[in-house]
Design a binder for these strands. Structure first.
Lengths: 236, 236
DNA sequence: TTTGCATAAATTGTGTACAAAGAGCGGCGA
DNA sequence: TCGCCGCTCTTTGTACACAATTTATGCAAA
């Protein structure tokens, strides 16, 4: 049996990450309770959990609001994430992958390459590539063998506004993927170098490559976000 | 006005970090509520918050227990911490310290040096050096200008069993500082090199030094912890 | 003695009522 | 008209009662 608190926490997390509420928007306990068909108690527990995860801001006696990330904060988070994923890449390279993991790793890389290099590049291919991208990074993190590191990286990824592949915006109704195809190609080139370094047990090189890889993504998103902010300001 | 939840959270956190409960020990909601003279509601909120901070483990319908860190987990946490503090050192060096911060930084280093090099080395000096050590690291983290990084590092420091200066154990009644004087001298030498690198704006060198510095502390604690585990096993 | 089950006790999960703090609003005076 | 005060209303914080689940206990049978 799963408790209502767990269920509400999961649903609310998905709603916030999915952009159902505007950043800075208040989350009314009573309204959420009615919407979820539970009492305020599990809702309050869920809000507390999401606050601890960094998805919400909280002020005593004032309630919870969806956290609004400034451009600076987003850059800060990406800096930390780049360093942590760099560490994971180094540890993975130094430890080495087991045979099964090695095979899966190669398979993931190959499929991504086929997609990017292929003739078709529609929504389905982008979606698939995004999933494989997450899997690729996940395999490296798993191979690092450091659970605390894995959690720390996960924390940098589950934040409103910034998700695993690309940028979601709360201004639009549905997710907008910001990258053009050239960016995917560049990202894939990074992946190929990274895979080579890790499989060749080159820890230092893997770390440097991963750091640069994630920081590049951060810079890209930073630029897009800066433009978006200007656009949003122009609208308001 | 401060809410009861905040007050209970703070008190409970201090109790857990101070070693008032055995790792693995159950935290009974009713008992805590009576001890703190509040109802179960703020106690549950506090337990949830401390669980999110990583101080407690939780299983639905089974309650909260003080988190028990394995030796492996402690090493993993130190690895992450070393990398993050290394990043902070690099950012601090690259950004550079403002004049006031620069002066305070030098002052902190000088006082630590006077203590370690001085003739007296009692409990008071150790305590003072520990406080300055925290301040030294804190100044670097602040100078990095990355709030998310500061939070991430703080998370690696507030865990039961491992605190800022030395190791607390739940087996003994009061905190035990594990280091001998030679270790303090070695640590201080690291600090001198680090201060030099940061003030000279040598980012890469500062990062490498800080990483090694924190990892050395981690190895030291790891060894002590391993011995302690053997001792504890022998006793039981 | 041990194992299994049924029952009882203890503990956590949830709903709800009430207390308290904050936000919004209207009236009053300068 | 503007600013301030006090009120009301909304929203959050807390206590408590009850439901649901887990854990302990005791008894009977293998």
């Amino acid at each position: 049996m799963v408790t209502r608190t767990e269920s509400v926490t999961r649903r609310l997390r998905e709603a916030v990450l999915g952009g159902a509420y505007m950043p800075g928007g208040r989350l009314n306990e009573m309204a959420l309770a009615e919407a979820m068909q539970v009492s305020r108690t599990p809702v309050r527990a869920a809000l507390g959990a999401l606050f601890a995860e960094g998805l919400l801001d909280y002020e005593p006696n004032c309630g919870y609001v969806v956290r609004r990330l400034s451009l600076d904060e987003a850059v800060h988070i990406y800096t930390v994430r780049a360093t942590l994923e760099g560490l994971a890449a180094r540890l993975a390279a130094e430890t080495g992958l087991a045979d099964a993991a090695r095979a899966r790793f190669r398979e993931t890389l190959d499929e991504m390459e086929r997609l990017v290099a292929g003739d078709n590049w529609g929504d389905a291919e982008q979606q698939r590539w995004g999933d494989l991208n997450i899997a690729f990074h996940g395999q490296i993190i798993a191979a690092s063998g450091n659970g605390y590191l894995a959690n720390s990286i996960q924390r940098t990824r589950t934040l409103p506004l910034l998700t695993e592949s690309g940028v979601r915006t709360f201004l639009a109704e549905r997710a907008v993927v910001w990258w053009d195809r050239a960016a995917y190609r560049r990202s894939q080139d990074d992946h190929l170098d990274l895979g080579e370094a890790i499989l060749a047990r080159q820890g230092g090189r893997a770390e440097a490559l991963m750091r640069e890889h994630v920081e590049r993504a951060g810079r890209l998103i930073g630029r897009k976000l800066a433009n978006r902010t200007e656009a949003a300001l122009a609208l308001s």
